[in-house]
Amino acid sequence: MTSERIWTVYLSGEIHTNWRVEIMDAAKHRGLPIRFSAPVTDHPASDDCGVAILGAEENKFWHDRKGAQVNAIRTQTLIKDADIVVVRFGDKYKQWNAAFDAGYAAALGKPIIVNHDDSIVHPLKEVDAAAMAVAETPAQIVDILDYAITGRLAGYTDR
């Protein structure tokens, strides 16, 4: 049975692949009642927003801190408003911000779905332990969302 509710799903994590688009397109194709949100995924804008808005900093620490604090206005608000938080870890870069988002979501009691491949299971063991599910592919995430929202188990028929 489909819920009348519109779910809010926050998509946190790596910005170098199209995983967000895959999830959003598949969810739309299935007709899932989801409103997606995400951090700013324009890497230079995200890095430099603080100094672009609030003024230059000679010290890189303060440059980064201004950007992190301005970005946190968005990320903290959207995570608080989310029904489910999906956190994707890629293998190319260390996504400390994604790990922080996962911890923040866990502290708020939000259901978390983590997405990463087997090559980084060990460094993410604590994040995985806080998650309700650990998926290897965007397709698995959409199957989880479909099941959580509608009760449909993709690929299975009633017995």
Results as ranks from 00 to 15, higher is better:
128 D>S: 14
29 H>Q: 10
126 E>K: 14
54 L>G: 09
68 A>R: 15
18 N>P: 02
110 K>I: 04
6 I>T: 15
154 A>P: 01
4 E>M: 08
50 G>P: 05
68 A>Q: 12
27 A>Q: 02
111 P>I: 00
99 A>M: 14
2 T>G: 03
18 N>T: 10
122 H>K: 14
18 N>W: 02
76 Q>T: 15
121 V>C: 09
28 K>H: 05
155 G>H: 12
115 N>R: 12
26 A>W: 00
120 I>H: 06
138 P>L: 12
122 H>N: 11
73 I>D: 07
124 L>V: 05
49 C>S: 12
7 W>Q: 00
149 I>H: 02
72 A>S: 11
88 R>K: 12
126 E>N: 14
145 L>G: 04
76 Q>H: 15
86 V>W: 02
39 P>H: 13
144 I>M: 07
84 I>P: 00
80 K>F: 13
117 D>W: 08
123 P>H: 10
11 L>P: 01
63 H>A: 09
101 D>L: 03
26 A>P: 01
66 K>H: 09
33 P>F: 07
159 R>K: 11
85 V>L: 11
106 A>L: 03
71 N>T: 02
40 V>C: 04
1 M>N: 07
107 A>H: 08
72 A>C: 06
98 A>M: 03
27 A>S: 14
47 D>W: 13
52 A>V: 10
54 L>F: 12
67 G>T: 08
4 E>H: 09
104 Y>A: 07
129 A>H: 13
128 D>K: 12
28 K>E: 04
99 A>R: 14
85 V>E: 02
12 S>T: 02
106 A>Y: 04
